[in-house]
């Protein structure tokens, strides 16, 4: 029995790691190709033979070979630890993402709570990186990241509250099932829930969640912590080699993770109608990955379309618009829940 536990744990860990790495690499490749086509370029073309599919792998190999430069003024231990903190915070999210009714590494009762808490850890890593680099640009990048976390963690949490009220559970699997069994005015055929009910009922929450996750991920239009035209590379300025790869991977893995959470909370996750639970364990991942791909495409699309906001405008957006709207959304949702 005890052996069985360790074996299961090992398999789960390997799977989580594998899903995260593959997800990150595929989204990196997606970004390279999609951005290229948006800019009337071809993008990677040679690596791997066709379509340059191996470009992210080749980049990774290159980064591993690179010398890692550690400047004199850095706080070495914090500097070295920071990328792993970032990556760990992201990786931990993958533990609770349900790819099917049983296809989940850990089905926690407090899944949503866990995701929101653990995703903030990566920002601590960013702050560590900015502080320890001993570079003014890095420091400003780190501080911006911290300010951004404080401002956007709130709307992110508040946007999810609406979903939690409707579903009545904090477990991610529970939320998916609650969407599957959602009933419009008492009776509704199951097939109608192909259109995710929470996408309609929580449209405002979904919009806020996406905006806040963009900010959480520091992607354009909220990429002030990196802001290569202002802060050179922000907290990444002094990083090179493998540790830079960690940040890079963390960024894309985080994008996939937050897209997965958004799909689970608002888009019905892995669920598909008229499919038994056993079959759903095989089809579910495909369904979820499709939804993730759509959201990741949306993130990439936004990045290559929008300019960057200013730091004070970002704060105003969070505190003056997103948080009041999210609070109003909670109130309306709660009232409707009680009334109907």
């Amino acid at each position: 029995m005890i052996v069985n536990f360790w074996v299961t744990l090992g398999i789960k860990m390997a799977l989580v790691l594998g899903v995260m790495l593959v997800g990150a690499l595929v989204s990196i490749f997606g970004e390279l190709k999609i951005s290229a086509h948006m800019q009337s370029r071809i993008g990677p073309y040679f690596a791997g033979g066709r379509w340059g599919w191996a470009q992210p792998l080749a980049d990774g190999l290159k980064f591993i070979q690179k010398e890692e430069i550690i400047p004199d003024t850095v706080d070495v231990r914090v500097f070295k630890l920071a990328p792993y903190v970032v990556l760990m915070g992201t990786m931990a999210i993958y533990v609770v993402i349900p790819f099917g009714p049983d296809m989940v590494a850990g089905n926690l009762d407090l899944g949503v709570f866990y995701v929101l808490a653990i995703s903030s850890i990566s920002t601590v890593g960013v702050l560590m990186a900015g502080w320890s680099s001993g570079n003014k640009y890095s420091l400003m990048g780190g501080l911006r990241a911290a300010a951004q976390l404080i401002a956007y963690e709130l709307p992110l949490v508040l946007a999810v509250v609406g979903v939690v009220i409707l579903a009545g559970t904090l477990s991610l699997n529970g939320i998916v099932e609650a969407q599957a069994q959602w009933q419009w005015f008492g009776v509704t055929p199951e097939w109608l829930n192909v259109i995710p009910p929470y996408l309609i009922l929580q449209a405002v929450g979904f919009a806020i969640f996406l905006t806040a996750s963009l900010a959480e991920l520091s992607r354009t239009p909220f990429d002030m912590p990196i802001a290569e035209s202002e802060l050179v590379m922000g907290y990444l300025t002094e990083y090179s080699g493998l540790r830079f790869t960690m940040f890079f991977l963390g960024e894309y893995a985080g994008m996939v993770a937050l897209a997965a959470i958004a799909s689970t909370l608002f888009l019905g996750g892995y669920w598909l109608p008229f499919v038994s639970d056993d079959l759903l364990n095989f089809i579910g991942p495909v369904v979820l990955i499709t939804k993730i791909a759509l959201l990741v495409f949306l993130f990439i699309w936004m990045r290559w379309t929008f300019p960057r906001l200013r730091e004070d405008q970002l704060q105003q957006l969070a505190w003056r618009i997103l948080i009041p709207v999210a609070l109003a959304n909670i109130v309306v949702t709660a009232v409707l829940k009680v009334v109907f």
């Binding site: 009337s40 239009p221 035209s229 290559w304 929008f306 300019p307």
Partner: peptide
Amino acid sequence: YPLEIGAATPLMHALR
């Protein structure tokens, strides 16, 4: 100029 503000795509279209 949009690139400096953070939008990368106009650059490629105009440079073409």
